[in-house]
């Protein structure tokens, strides 16, 4: 009799907990793999496709499924390091076939543009404005410098120019690498 009671209690408990877990699984369901989100967070979102995937998110999914972490040139060594930290993998040098790129921005030579809209279709972030048979131009602030618009252009009127640095983007150099002491405040020499 007592053994039957024990079995009954256990069965009831199992039922209750099972129902709870089942409910929780539906109620707190996570739409996608959270690790993919975290990887995507680190990737630079240039959507350039140099990794061989059509965008940053697909590459994030591929990394989560075991692909190499060293295929993103815009992210650079710093990006590889961050990914290695997140995933507990070893730091690998950036893939040799890809080179770390300087930040650039696309520039359309507007008088040569024939208005074919091919670059507009290629731009992953909708940073090019224009209409058929009318001149196109790039919204510099939105351009990620992925250079996907360069190849489709039939008249080769798109240049990738290095992002111009002005006074507002200027940074104090790191004194650890900077042997030139021109910028160092002369505090010490107040005689």
């Amino acid at each position: 009799m007592s053994s039957l009671t024990a079995v009954l209690i256990l069965v009831c408990l199992a039922g209750v907990f099972g129902a709870l877990l089942g409910y929780a699984a539906i109620r707190y369901r996570v739409e996608s793999d959270p690790i993919v989100e975290q990887i995507d967070e680190i990737l630079p979102q240039t959507q350039c496709g140099q990794c061989g995937y059509p965008g940053c998110r697909p590459y994030a999914e591929a990394i989560a499924n075991g692909d190499d972490i060293n295929k993103c040139p815009p992210g650079g060594e710093a990006g590889v390091k961050a990914l290695a930290d997140l995933l507990g993998r070893d730091i690998k040098p950036l893939d040799d076939t890809l080179e770390e790129s300087q930040p650039t921005v696309a520039y359309i030579r507007e008088d040569e543009c024939i208005g074919c809209t091919k670059c507009i279709q290629a731009c992953p972030v909708d940073a090019i404005v224009g209409a058929p048979k009318l001149m196109h131009t790039v919204i510099i602030d939105e351009c990620t410098g992925c250079d996907l618009c360069v190849a489709p252009c039939p008249v080769d009127c798109i240049d990738m120019l290095p992002l111009e640095q002005d006074v507002r983007q200027w940074q104090w150099p790191n004194p650890a690498n900077d042997t030139d002491d021109d910028n160092i405040i002369p505090v010490r020499q107040v005689s």
Binding site: Q45, C56, R57, P124, A127, E142
Partner: peptide, 8 residues
Amino acid sequence: AAHARERF
């Protein structure tokens, strides 16, 4: 990057 992702 977040902005570019949103647009993409």
